[in-house]
Design a protein around this nucleic acid. Structure first.
Lengths: 338, 338
DNA sequence: AAATTTTACGCAATCGATGGCGGAACTTTA
DNA sequence: TAAAGTTCCGCCATCGATTGCGTAAAATTT
């Protein structure tokens, strides 16, 4: 039998209340004697007593649980996020429930229902652009929510973002400075806010340099290896081969690199490439990749801080957006054409 | 205010019991009229009623929660595991709590306490070799447990493993068949069961071929990029350069590859390498890596099946070990010396 | 019309922990 | 020795959902 407060109370001949007070370190303010406290403490240890969190949660209306909903846990971007978030929350006594949506709206919805049903204290969500209905379910219940890595149009909320446009401009301008004019944009889902902003940055940079963009230099699609691969190979085998690629995320970039290799070309000698997200493989290729790094650790910590301040202080503070700067990490995947 | 059963009961003028029965689809067996049932169902929908899981768990002594404790969530091996486990459990109505230990025993212990306190229905644990005390805490409470990716000496439990020794022998024998005699073992933590078995396989293969192993060809250490890198560079710069490396896991293998590249050498022309775990980057290098793949999906599903059968059927069945075969994936990272 | 059956629910205990309020027992003070 | 403090702790309601047992009211049978 698993011991409860009552088990201990019976053995020490006191009431549940007393045991509860002792085990919660409140016995002094309730004037419980040292002797009683000691007896209770040691018996609890002996019996390996562990508080039933379900009961505590029910009574206290607080679960010390945070739901973390990501699009793809196998993407290093998210698995790192989870690691940082888990670590930060663990030290504050919180536990995380992981939900993987695989970019599926219904699944996201299902997960949100579960989290609300479990009365989580807060949610970190990396939504998909169409999540707005799902998000309203959370907002209606007044559950603290941090939206991560995606801005939803016209939706007021707490956001954790990076400056996608500026980050992209820095990278594309770098290409332009190196003399590139034929720069292809291989993007993710066209409706995704990140993709739109990165695309905007790309256009801005080229526009500032008065370089026009042929339609077939823009390849929206989705954030997958496959899309990167196909877009790259198709262009490299066309009769208007670009000199550089911009990849909208790590998956696309990797796919594009593979495509380039499969076409028998070398980075950076035959073709240049830069893109979003830093990842380990980027440093492993023969020519390490120049990338735009997102400050993941800071983003994770900001998300946690934001949530905890709403949870533990007040939830009626105005919405905040944490917009961090990206870092342009120059390695060796671009060629200077000048 | 968040609606409860009572909220609905009051509005429909019935008792909590009736509402509960209707919402749990048990109203027929309790002879509740269709009319009442309909009123309740639609009101619940209108109010966006969501059952309080803490209350349900408390009463039912079942949480529909599984704890998943991994050593390093950012290792693709574990993030894939988590993905498969999450997906399988989601479809069965279970939720997972993620715990990352970072190979730290105290942290593992802390996480186990939290999970037990939350009365999870089961735990999937990828332990470290010294976890035995922690594991006993779980066993003492009779909580179903699946040990993943690590065999603890003399500990009876449910295990999900692969045939490390056979898998390694296949790979090392392959090197030997290609004429390699100077094969280095770059290993993980010396006490880790995987490492020991992989090392045993390595020794067996060489012994069968009557090839002796100089001491400095065995580099135990830990499962890190750094260790792989350092072991590789050190050997490549020594005066007894091997012709092939065997890497005990994906992190080590990547580090070794990087080390090889930094020494200005080419895979497979200058040096051959094979190793454990398949991972995306393995296919991205100029010469894709020949690896020993673990059937992660099957392992994850087996772990889930094993746990669920204990949870939902009986926990008094004998312990089982799921030992799956590895798959040798031949790519192009070894040179035929014959 | 009385007896029996069926229909349709309600009562109250339970799961385990928490905390406000109250109070008995003992000690000190006047 | 009675009044006033202290010391030390218990009673009981509460959180929300579930379920065994019981029963009033309506319907049916005899």
């Amino acid at each position: 039998m698993i011991p409860t407060l009552q088990t201990i109370a019976d053995r020490v001949n006191v009431s549940r209340s007393t045991v509860s007070r002792v085990l919660n370190n409140k016995w002094k303010m309730y004037g419980i004697s040292q002797a009683t406290a000691d007896k209770i403490t040691s018996l609890a240890k002996e019996l390996h007593y562990l508080k039933n969190e379900a009961a505590r949660s029910l009574r206290e209306k607080k679960t010390f649980t945070i739901g973390v909903i990501v699009r793809d846990i196998t993407n290093p971007f998210y698995s790192q996020l989870v690691k940082f978030v888990e670590s930060a929350l663990y030290s504050k006594g919180y536990t995380i429930i992981i939900c993987n949506t695989g970019y599926d709206l219904d699944r996201e919805n299902g997960h949100i229902n579960v989290l609300l049903s479990r009365r989580v204290d807060g949610i970190i969500l990396s939504p998909i652009q169409k999540s707005i209905e799902n998000i309203f379910k959370i907002k209606d219940r007044n559950v603290p929510l941090a939206l991560f890595d995606c801005k939803i149009d016209d939706l007021e909320a707490d956001y954790i973002l990076v400056d996608n446009e500026a980050g992209t401009m820095e990278a594309v301008s770098y290409l332009i400075d190196q003399g590139h004019k034929k720069i292809v944009y291989i993007g993710g889902n066209p409706y995704d806010s990140n993709n739109r902003l990165r695309y905007a940055g790309y256009r801005n940079s080229l526009s500032l340099a008065s370089i026009s963009i042929p339609d077939h230099y823009v390849k929206h699609g989705n954030y997958s290896f496959k899309h990167g691969y196909e877009a790259a190979t198709q262009l490299l085998r066309s009769n208007d081969v670009p000199t550089a690629f911009f990849a909208a995320n790590n998956r696309i970039m990797l796919g594009a690199c593979k495509g380039i290799m499969d076409c028998g070309l070398q980075i950076p000698d035959d073709i240049s490439i830069v893109g979003f997200d830093d990842f380990e493989t980027a440093t492993m290729l023969p020519s390490p990749l120049t990338v735009i790094r997102q400050p993941l650790r800071e983003m994770a910590l900001n998300a946690v801080d934001l949530l905890l301040s709403r949870i533990e202080k007040a939830n009626n503070i105005p919405y905040m957006t944490s917009m961090l700067k990206t870092e342009f990490v120059i390695r060796n995947s671009t060629k200077n054409l000048n």
